[in-house]
């Protein structure tokens, strides 16, 4: 199988990687680049655990081919904190106990960050609909919603 040489930007770093045409971006991230923070829950776009942004657009990385992302700007959970400064959403997720097993957490954080970038002061309902693409089986969502609403307040200051 012919591999494609992809040059792209991942969390601010310019990287090179060889990818098979059928490989999803998720598989490229996890298997080729060893960025295992992005999780696979279904590989069919139904759970959101693999959420990343490409040029600021929120997507499921399982539904993107690696060959499509040349020259793009990809952000994953590994790039969310600024050095040793956690993003306010990361802080609030911990503070509100918005994570239990944690497998959905990276995807939820990426989706929540994207949500607050588009809507800095969402209502509870907007947060719930904004995160409806991310399944969480542990929390029942309440503490996640509370954490996002609280982070929105902090980030607006």
């Amino acid at each position: 199988m012919t591999k494609h040489h992809i040059q792209t930007t991942l969390n601010g770093d310019e990287i090179d990687v060889l990818v098979e045409p059928a490989q999803s971006l998720l598989d490229v991230l996890r298997d080729e680049l060893h960025m295992t923070g992005t999780k696979e829950g279904c590989a069919t776009g139904d759970c959101g655990a693999c959420s990343v942004t490409i040029d600021g657009n929120l997507v499921c990385s399982c539904l993107v081919l690696g060959v499509e992302v040349g020259g793009r700007n990809i952000e994953t959970i590994e790039g969310m904190a600024n050095g040793d400064q956690l993003h306010p959403l990361q802080d609030k997720f911990i503070e509100h106990v918005a994570l239990q097993c944690g497998i959905c957490t990276p995807g939820l954080l990426i989706a929540a960050k994207h949500l607050l970038e588009e809507n800095p002061d969402p209502t509870e309902e907007e947060v719930r609909y904004g995160l409806a693409g991310n399944l969480c089986r542990c929390t029942g969502y309440q503490k996640v919603v509370e954490a996002v609403l609280d982070a929105a307040q902090v980030m607006q200051k």
């Binding site: 295992t36 992005t38 696979e40 959970i77 590994e78 997720f93 911990i94 503070e95 944690g102 990276p106």
Partner: peptide
């Protein structure tokens, strides 16, 4: 202090290692 929740930092940063993350 939530920041001392020993698993939580790993989970919000993508560091936590689940079975599929082992190679």
């Amino acid at each position: 202090n939530p920041a001392d929740r020993s698993d939580a930092i790993d989970k919000v940063t993508g560091r936590a290692r689940y079975a599929a993350d082992y190679n």
